[in-house]
């Protein structure tokens, strides 16, 4: 019997069934986990949308992601059931918990008015599956929540597009000639770095945000990724390529909607935060409105 069961398991291990399936775990576009209802014991599947922290102002933002660490190890940024991170205990402090309903007594020197036994959700590796005595007011807020508040207070915006040829009804660039792109009039809240803090109770978090890269969608099916602010064009550059961030159109824009390529710039923000015993990184994108750029062709007459 043992041999038969083992054989079955081995075959299963070596791989069987299943055609390729789209994966939320791979794509990060929402996943479903089971949670047990602490009242009824029933399993309830909960599906979350992708997006992490997302944008801070809701305009032009395109999702985001977060990573958190504690003592040099990457850990989940949030705990189950709204539990809050405690740097004192190194765990996510959850609901009041009295295993077995035994009416556990407070530790020596404490009373039931001073605190309560709580579930501690341990980041890996775990040690003891026992409740932890938490004094009242000891856990206030998850540092990740404070980091998000700090980011929101920065009031970050998409960049202001600088581009030549310029946008406008009387402006036309030429096929094959250099296009220069840059961040026009960069400020702390469009390019960073910018630092802000948020605190509640004894927990304080400081966050610094910077644009790590800008993805320029040129409207002709190509994207250009630039890591700096770019170089503003000046007449003395003539027909040189931009040394930092440029493009060349290969076709006229006459067959495009409104006869123009729709150019957008998506700035990728990276926020490093620290506080409450944790540190982490939050990333998200902010995208500009589309800017129409007209591209034509030079006609040469010969006799």
């Amino acid at each position: 019997m043992l041999a038969r069961v083992v054989a079955a398991a081995v075959v299963a291990l070596l791989g069987l069934l299943v055609a390729p399936v789209p994966s939320a775990l791979a794509d990060g576009d929402g996943q479903c986990t089971q949670q047990v209802d602490p009242e009824t014991g029933q399993v309830k599947w909960v599906c979350e949308d992708d997006g992490g922290t997302g944008g801070t102002d809701g305009t032009g933002s395109t999702g985001g992601s977060s990573t958190c660490s504690y003592s040099g190890r990457e850990i989940p940024c949030t705990g189950p059931e709204g539990s809050a991170w405690s740097s004192t205990y190194g765990c996510y402090v959850g609901a009041v918990w009295d295993p077995g309903g035994a009416g556990a007594q407070p530790p020596p020197g404490q009373t039931n008015q001073d605190g309560a036994w709580h579930i501690c959700y341990w980041p890996p590796p775990g040690s003891s599956w026992d409740p932890v005595w938490i004094q009242n007011g000891e856990v206030t807020i998850d540092p990740v929540v404070l980091a998000q508040r700090a980011i929101a207070s920065m009031d970050l915006d998409p960049i202001q597009i600088g581009i030549v040829p310029e946008s406008g009804p009387n402006r036309v660039g030429l096929v094959g000639l250099p296009v220069w792109m840059w961040v026009d009039s960069p400020t702390d809240d469009t390019f960073g770095p910018i630092t802000a803090s948020a605190s509640e109770g004894s927990v304080s978090v400081s966050a610094t945000a910077s644009v790590a890269s800008i993805v320029w969608d040129m409207g002709d099916g190509t994207t250009v990724t630039c890591t700096g602010e770019g170089t503003p064009y000046a007449d003395h550059y003539g027909k040189q390529d931009s040394p930092t961030c440029g493009h060349r159109y290969e076709k006229m824009s006459t067959d495009q909607p409104d006869g123009a390529y729709q150019v957008t710039a998506t700035s990728h923000w990276v926020v490093e935060w620290t506080g409450g015993g944790q540190s982490g990184t939050i990333e998200f994108d902010l995208t500009t409105d589309a800017l129409p750029i007209r591209i034509g062709e030079a006609q040469v007459l010969t006799q």
């Binding site: 949670q35 009242e39 009824t40 959700y121």
Partner: peptide, 19 residues
């Protein structure tokens, strides 16, 4: 990762529910 936390939620909730 999340699985490590999720199993803790599941187990504690079973215990808390008395099931």
């Amino acid at each position: 990762g999340q699985v490590f936390l999720n199993i803790q939620q599941n187990v504690s909730a079973i215990e808390r529910s008395g099931s």
